[in-house]
Simulated scan of single mutants.
Amino acid sequence: MVPLAEAWDSGASAWTKNRRVAYANYLQDPRHLVAVTARSNRSNRSNRSNRSKSDQDPATWMPPAPDATCRYTADWISVKLTWNLAIDPAEHDTLAALADTCPDQTITYTPAP
């Protein structure tokens, strides 16, 4: 969900190697690691869109499907909270605006060990 490079820029650069490995391989919560293949996308356009995400945060990239916005926003925030990762001002403003459009979305998380 939150790409490794984004996590690095958000605080993972100060983590131990073991914690970075734990983050990269965290499977206790399905929101953290979202595998995407060409077959799992509905079209080649979706695959290009996923690749275009790269290491961007919600201030510069959102899923192309409008019905995915609330879930994506909640999952992004959940992962950031789970790992105590920082958000930059543009990311904060975007997430706040998106959250306002998702009043029924619940954000849950458990701090990572």
Rank of each mutant, 00 (worst) to 15 (best):
A5Q: 13
T106L: 15
D9G: 09
Y72S: 03
K80C: 02
P111H: 13
A12V: 05
R19D: 10
M1W: 05
S49V: 06
I87H: 01
Q28P: 15
Y26S: 08
I107N: 10
T60V: 10
R71T: 11
G11M: 04
P30M: 13
T69V: 04
N41K: 06
T16Y: 15
D57I: 01
R42Q: 11
E6C: 00
R51L: 12
A99V: 15
V2N: 00
S78E: 02
H92P: 13
A97R: 13
S52P: 09
W8I: 07
T60N: 05
Y109H: 10
P113L: 14
T82F: 09
A14H: 12
V21Y: 14
W76G: 01
K80D: 00
D57L: 01
V34F: 01
A38W: 14
R20K: 13
W61G: 00
S52H: 13
A24P: 07
Y26H: 12
A22E: 11
Y72I: 03
P63Y: 02
W15I: 04
P103W: 15
S43R: 05
I77N: 00
P63W: 04
R48W: 06
A96I: 13
T82V: 07
D67M: 07
N84H: 07
N44C: 11
V34N: 02
R51C: 10
A7G: 02
D88Q: 07
S78T: 06
H32Y: 02
N47C: 11
A59V: 03
N47G: 12
T110C: 14
L81H: 03
R20M: 13
V21K: 14
V36F: 01
L4M: 14
P111N: 07
